[in-house]
Design a protein around this nucleic acid. Structure first.
Lengths: 160, 160
DNA sequence: TGCCATTACTTTACATGTAAAGTATATGTA
DNA sequence: TACATATACTTTACATGTAAAGTAATGGCA
């Protein structure tokens, strides 16, 4: 069933120049892998990862949010959020409303249709998470989480 | 100097639904952060992360490589490699040569100009790695690497 | 020899992500 | 009130990444 011995990992060869580099490349590689997997799941529901994230944030907030507030909760740069919301609006998953008091602000809200889709995804998503790293036990997960948080620590302090 | 209390992390709020989810989100978030930082460094040399990776792979190989071989060493899907190499070629960082024996194959090679840039980046890159996670000691790095490798394990076996 | 499947790329269409510049509003202050 | 700034977005230009379909060459086999 499986093709010959295609690419095992990503045919690595270069001996790492340092443990730091090895760790960083491992993070990037693992993230890419998981990102792809999750992306496939979202695609089954007609969403991309970013779109899903916007909707999840809106659901979590429970009420309309300004565009920039949404962008700040994602890792994204400002300009990207506009097109993202444009596409969500076209799919009728969010609606935009100008704020009366401050007309520069645009409030974005998830529609019922979006909430329905999110609800549908909830379970498969939890399953997907389990499938992806369910083979690590709770202690290992805790360790991993701790190490990653520590990794981000110095950067967390300044800005982005 | 630092703006008020802008966004600390990425204003998290939702309590994680499971440790698995927390771990995955941590991986994605950390990766994004590092990816951005490295991207800035590459940009100083006129390269994007992907472009740098292609060149690094070519340097590691030491000789011309078929496009698909390059793509397989990156996490990328096939179509993306074409445009990527197009842009590198336009910058005179790689050259393309059709294989005589199998005219479907296109060999890609790094130019001297590319090798010079890579050499210039080497040291700053090692510094950047150190700066990003140099605060983890060797044991922690080893643990982190081990956990990430274990995380990818089940997926590594089948295909992508 | 002739044809089909495979292989190695390309092309096309579209969703993102980054950077830089522009627009509409608000706000603080002289 | 008039003006310089700051805000909250948009727009524009590009580099990627994904999926799906198309093209050119090879190879295997009847």
């Amino acid at each position: 069933m499986t093709p010959p011995g295609l690419q095992d990992e990503i045919k690595k060869r270069e001996p790492f120049e340092s443990r730091e580099q090895e760790a960083i490349l491992n993070i990037l590689k693992t993230s890419d892998l998981f990102h792809n997997r999750m992306g496939r799941l979202f695609r089954e529901y007609g969403l991309t990862s970013s779109q899903y994230n916007v909707l999840r944030i809106l659901r979590g907030e429970g009420k309309p949010m300004p565009s920039l507030e949404i962008a700040s909760r994602m890792i994204q740069v400002v300009p990207a959020i506009t097109g993202l919301i444009d596409r969500l609006e076209k799919q009728e998953l969010v609606s935009r409303v100008r704020c009366d008091k401050d007309r520069r602000v645009v409030y974005v809200a998830a529609t019922q249709k979006a909430l329905d889709i999110l609800a549908e995804i909830d379970e498969p998503l939890v399953d997907a998470h389990k499938k992806l790293i369910g083979h690590l036990n709770q202690d290992e997960l805790k360790q991993l989480i701790g190490l990653l948080e520590k990794s981000r620590e110095p950067v967390t302090k300044d800005d982005s």
